[in-house]
Amino acid sequence: MRFYALILLTLFAGLCLASCWTSDACVEGDACECFDGDECYLGCNGDNCDQRCHHMNRCGAVCEHGCDFECFDVDECSASCGDDCNLECHHTAACGAICERDCRFDCHDTSRCGVVVGPGSVVSCRSVATCEVECQGSCEVYCESVDDCDVTCSDGSRAAECSDRMRACGGC
């Protein structure tokens, strides 16, 4: 739970300390990118945005629905997205996200990953030390080469172990 608090704190700090914008504002359907800086916050006013952060200390992104977000070579990365989003985080120290229904979260080659996802979502953690997932409905979580894979369902129960790599809330 402390990790989730860190995720939210990083995201809200990004709102207050934004130091990087690719344009005045990202709008629906835009591609927005931050790189080679200290901190950056990407906000998208609408759906279907393509957001990217790389080679920074801290970066966060917020989008509505149907968005793509990739974060790499960033120490701390966070994202908040609505339904049907694709989030990828790799080569970071910590990565966290909050995503609603039918999201795909891929976290790899990272120290710590944490995500809260809605029903119908699929999470993949590979080559990470810690992967913490909270499913707010049915979800599938795939853990490969993970030291600690902790999946909690919305009712507080542990996820079912469907195989040595896959855990699920809502049945296998």
Rank of each mutant, 00 (worst) to 15 (best):
F72E: 00
C162E: 06
R52L: 15
R58Q: 11
A93D: 04
C131F: 07
A5D: 13
C153A: 11
D38N: 09
G43I: 06
D147E: 15
S80E: 05
R104S: 06
G46E: 02
C77G: 01
G82E: 01
E161C: 11
W21A: 15
H65R: 15
G156E: 02
S121A: 06
C44N: 05
S163K: 07
C44D: 03
C131V: 08
I98C: 06
V62P: 03
R101A: 12
N57R: 11
T130Q: 09
N48D: 12
M166E: 15
C81Q: 08
S23A: 15
C135I: 01
E88C: 08
D36H: 13
V62H: 02
G37P: 00
T10A: 02
R104P: 04
R101V: 13
R2C: 12
R112S: 02
A31D: 10
C63L: 12
E70V: 05
G29T: 02
C169V: 11
L42Y: 10
Y4G: 12
C77H: 03
D106M: 04
V122S: 06
R167F: 05
A94G: 01
C32G: 00
A159Y: 08
A5F: 06
H55P: 00
D36R: 09
N57G: 07
C32D: 00
L87N: 07
S78A: 14
T92D: 02
T130P: 04
F105V: 13
Q136F: 06
L6F: 10
R167T: 08
C16G: 13
L42F: 10
R52C: 08
A31F: 15
A18K: 06
C135V: 01
T152I: 13
E70W: 10
D102T: 12
C143L: 10
G114V: 00
S124N: 15
M56R: 00
Y41F: 11
C89Y: 00
D24P: 10
C44P: 11
E33G: 08
R58E: 11
F105N: 04
M56F: 00
L17V: 04
G171Y: 14
C81L: 12
H108I: 09
M56H: 00
E134A: 14
E28L: 06
A93C: 02
R165D: 07
Y142A: 12
C71V: 04
E140P: 09
C44K: 04
C103N: 05
G60A: 08
Y41S: 03
Y142M: 13
L15E: 07
D106Y: 01
G37F: 00
C172A: 13
D83N: 07
N57W: 08
V74R: 02
V74M: 05
F12W: 10
R101M: 12
L11T: 06
M56I: 00
G43N: 14
I7M: 07
